[in-house]
Simulated assay, not measured.
Amino acid sequence: MSYGVSGSGSLLPDIPDDPEVLFTNFLMAIWDDTVSGVPKAEINFGYEPDINTTERYVIKIEEIDNEDFSPDLADRYTQDEFYMNCHIWERDASIHSTTAGMARWKMRRYIKRVIKQNCRTGIVVGGNRYIKHLYLIGGGNVPEPEQTDWHHTVIVFKMVTWLVDAST
């Protein structure tokens, strides 16, 4: 199956993998250490922090199970939307307070910028365009539980693609 307008030369290939994996790979491919302020080599992509986590920073993308209204126009237009949470964790010795200049804030700002900059161009991986649009919805810091040194923030966004049959 191809996404986009049939026969127009702008077809999108079928999504080859889980949307979480697709966005994680996209983020890893375009990560810029200088602009983000945090070196990619210091980030553990794709996992939640646990006792075995050695990196100070963790970024994990999760799809939100959300059944929002999505137009489906009788086999002529089928929209697929994926609502996603981008979790960012930072380990810090400051247990109960957020300290100035935390990299978690820098990473959140950078990822929001990536989403906004790729709003209309979507996600291209390996020369193939799989997601048509990205939309920033919101997000912010998550209250941290007692006795932990992990600080947590979430970015909420939507990935959209669609199948349009223009042959009839």
Rank of each mutant, 00 (worst) to 15 (best):
E55G: 00
G9A: 08
L11M: 14
D72F: 14
L163D: 14
A74M: 02
S97C: 03
W150Q: 03
M84Q: 14
S97W: 11
V124P: 01
R91C: 00
H96I: 12
H87N: 14
A93L: 10
F69S: 09
G4W: 04
W105H: 10
T121F: 00
F157S: 00
D72K: 15
F69G: 12
I15T: 08
P143M: 11
N66H: 08
I61P: 02
M1H: 03
H87L: 05
W31N: 06
H151K: 15
G7K: 04
V5T: 02
H151R: 14
M1I: 08
G140F: 12
L12Q: 10
I59S: 02
W150I: 04
T153I: 06
E20K: 11
I64T: 10
V5K: 02
T98C: 02
I64S: 06
R56D: 01
M159A: 15
H152T: 13
S94Y: 09
L22Q: 09
K158G: 01
A93C: 00
G7I: 09
Y130T: 04
E144F: 01
R113L: 08
S167F: 13
T78M: 13
G122E: 03
T53D: 02
V58S: 04
V38M: 07
P49A: 03
I155D: 10
D75P: 00
L73I: 13
L136P: 01
M84V: 11
Y83V: 02
H96Q: 14
I131M: 07
V164L: 05
G138T: 11
Y3S: 11
Y47N: 13
D18K: 09
V160F: 06
D165R: 13
M107S: 05
Y130S: 05
N85F: 11
A93N: 11
F82H: 11
D32N: 15
T34P: 04
V58L: 04
E146P: 01
N128R: 14
S10D: 13
I59C: 08
I95H: 00
D17I: 09
M107E: 03
V58N: 03
T148I: 06
R76I: 06
S36T: 08
